[in-house]
Amino acid sequence: MRGRIAVQEATFDVNAELAALSATGVGGLASFIGVVRGGNGLSALRLEHYPGMTERELARLADAACARWALRGCTIIHRVGRLELGAPIVLVATASAHRADALAATAFLIDQLKTGAPFWKSEEFADGSHRWVAARDADEAAAAAWRQDLPPPPEPL
């Protein structure tokens, strides 16, 4: 069970995606939606990726989640291109018979997405300039924690 993987410019319909996951008669769904965060004069994000490799890495992450937790379904949709403030960037959703599997698998997938798939964000500002986002050590630590079977560290405030 690999699940549904998509990399697209268009937005996604959360209700339709969750309905598709629940159609198999599962016990519960967990989901995470990443959204473009404002501040510091940011006007939009631009996301670039490595076509082909991205889809393969996302499928590999979905397979890893399915191997580790008892999932009935798994959906990863990641947007690319220019995304306005408040726009959804990524949807991770999982379905399982019992809540613990879906909740843990969703947290695992969003942590791995940040460090394990070839996406690059740049920040676009009101004056038209842009700046590439640097990788964060905290994201690497969160992804690595799953490899050591430790709970991920809390997000910095």
Binding site: G34, I110, K114, A117, F119, A134, A135
Partner: peptide, 10 residues
């Protein structure tokens, strides 16, 4: 072969 900076998705 592809060269790139550390990834920043999610």
């Amino acid at each position: 072969i592809a060269f790139f900076p550390p990834v920043t998705g999610g």
